[in-house]
Design a protein around this nucleic acid. Structure first.
Lengths: 154, 154
DNA sequence: GTATGACCTCAAGTAATCTTGAGGTCAAGG
DNA sequence: CCTTGACCTCAAGATTACTTGAGGTCATAC
């Protein structure tokens, strides 16, 4: 069971990773990597045997994709956010920073939504409002019904 | 264009909502409501014309479903979390509280994941680590590579 | 020299989450 | 009385995010 990685045709072998290596390092399935490439989220070059070779900086791209997935942000949004970061070469510090900041804002927004929901749910637990009449956030678009029955939040 | 809600056959009309009313109040499409019912996430009774009628407390269930959707938590998880809360009658304060607390834990977990990612991304912005060698979190499963090139985090 | 494992392509399948469409009921409005 | 709107069912289609399968190349291990 030794590694059957083919002979390297490039000068510095460890600068390029096989799809299997990227998969192992990122925890992303090989099939998923090929799929992401199809979507244009990541990119690879080919060696003389037509096998994908990934530059190291692609690991970060892959990681970002799994992160987006993990927190339920659609891949299309990720694509938009990192549209300006080049795939064919390591992004410059600036390029990366700009995109990262946008992404951070996205994460922050997400976190705040959850925080609001947490707070709201705490409120519900506290008041035990079973009619939801007082739960504006959990019940968006429902102006508080005006008949007098049911519990209220204090 | 007046409302064509059928004559009420029940004693207290406003205790029961039509699917259109629930849709309007929760912002959830009618088709989605029917779909959620199929999944057993919500429930309804039928009137003498075989149309769905929802008790008010179902609004909260629906709201929870949209919340789960909004933050990218699969509906199956929601089903699990609220499995013990009855659909056929307004849940007791206790029943609701217990399930809510479980759900809150879920939200908190989610939030913390995002917070960790935010922190990690901030770190990356700070150091500009383009090789990802120092980014353990964004690059899970990748033990820091040991060749000496590339930027480091300070 | 043949078996194995890592890779390739392309097509089809799966799961979740709904939406859309076809075809029908029924009550109120004009 | 006929149209319209709100509802019904059931089946099929859409989207996202992949996985699986069939069929093939090629280098290393035995």
């Amino acid at each position: 069971m030794t590694t059957k990685r083919p002979k390297e045709t490039r000068a510095r072998p460890d600068d390029w990773l096989t799809i299997g290596e990227v998969s192992a390092r990122t925890g992303t399935a090989v099939s998923a990597l090929r799929f992401y490439e199809e979507l244009g989220l990541i990119a690879s070059e080919r060696d003389d045997r037509n096998q994908r070779r990934y530059p190291r900086h692609m690991l970060r791209r892959v990681a970002l994709v799994s992160v987006a997935k993990r927190i339920g942000i659609p891949l299309q949004d990720l694509r938009d956010a990192f549209a300006d970061v080049p795939l064919d070469r390591p992004p410059s510090h600036q390029e990366w920073q700009r995109a990262s900041r946008g992404w951070k804002r996205r994460l922050e927004e997400r976190r705040k939504t959850i925080e609001r929901l947490e707070a709201e749910l705490t409120g519900c637990i506290g008041c035990g409002c079973l009619s939801m009449k007082a739960c504006a956030l959990l019940n968006p678009g429902d102006e508080l019904a005006e008949d007098g029955t049911g519990p209220r939040r204090l």
